[in-house]
Design a protein around this nucleic acid. Sequence first.
DNA 1: CCGGGACTCATACTAAAGTACCAAAAGCAT
DNA 2: ATGCTTTTGGTACTTTAGTATGAGTCCCGG
Lengths: 138, 138
Amino acid sequence: MKKTIFIFSALTIALLVLFQLSKYTYMSGDISIEIIIAVIAIIFFFIGAYLRTKTAKKEMIAESGINHKKIEELGISKREYEVLVQIGKGLSNQEIAESLFLSESTVKTHVSNLLIKLDAKRRTQALQKAKELQILSQ
Amino acid sequence: MKKTIFIFSALTIALLVLFQLSKYTYMSGDISIEIIIAVIAIIFFFIGAYLRTKTAKKEMIAESGINHKKIEELGISKREYEVLVQIGKGLSNQEIAESLFLSESTVKTHVSNLLIKLDAKRRTQALQKAKELQILSQ
DNA sequence: CCGGGACTCATACTAAAGTACCAAAAGCAT
DNA sequence: ATGCTTTTGGTACTTTAGTATGAGTCCCGG
């Protein structure tokens, strides 16, 4: 919201500056009014497109954003979450162990805890629930 | 591409029309040049924003679509694909068998074939690859 | 009619995955 | 310092998952 106000203020100021500029150049008679208007139109066209891109990106991030609150709520620890991410990549326990420099036993412990915390019976179900809860990037 | 050309043509025409309009109104002396410029700026601001929104939406749709061609290319049959969808829901072979009215043996056969066709070693890896290939809805 | 692909199912096996329980070291806050 | 949680690891066990192989049924195109 603060940013929106800031952007609109900046836009208004920019508009006023352009008015003064156009007035001056028009008075001097060097540049035709058509070109000034064209430049202004193009500038504002791209400003509009740029702002939409920014807000669209924000929406995308908000949609695909990871819900850190829910991770905490479920009591999932850092290490457990790292294991969850590797599961999402389709790795086996042994492969996860190698990628995180752990023994397979430790990975199994983490996986078991994850299954309890996500209320799942299998790792595939854990993945499905994690995506449902927006804990994992799709 | 055709649409892009069309949009730019329309934009150019609109610009020219506005020029003529502004010239006329300026000559008549009724409306100040500032207001004309402001209106043009606002109009083009929203045109830019609108076009960005449209292209962003198109990108989203293109991303979330299921690639039926790739399913065919990989030689995945109807029944195999149904099993794949159930795997994505986090079901076990036994549960898939019940939901599709099959024996567990049949499900295992389908899963094995899927793993070969998707070049995966585990069902979780198959899911990851399926999503990568945009075969499964995220 | 017949070969081939898709679908179904079974058995027997190996390899992962997951459970249960225990335990020690490390990090952290009161 | 002393609990507390996290992280790590182990053993022993059960359950699923996945492989290999064979085989019967159904449907479709040549």
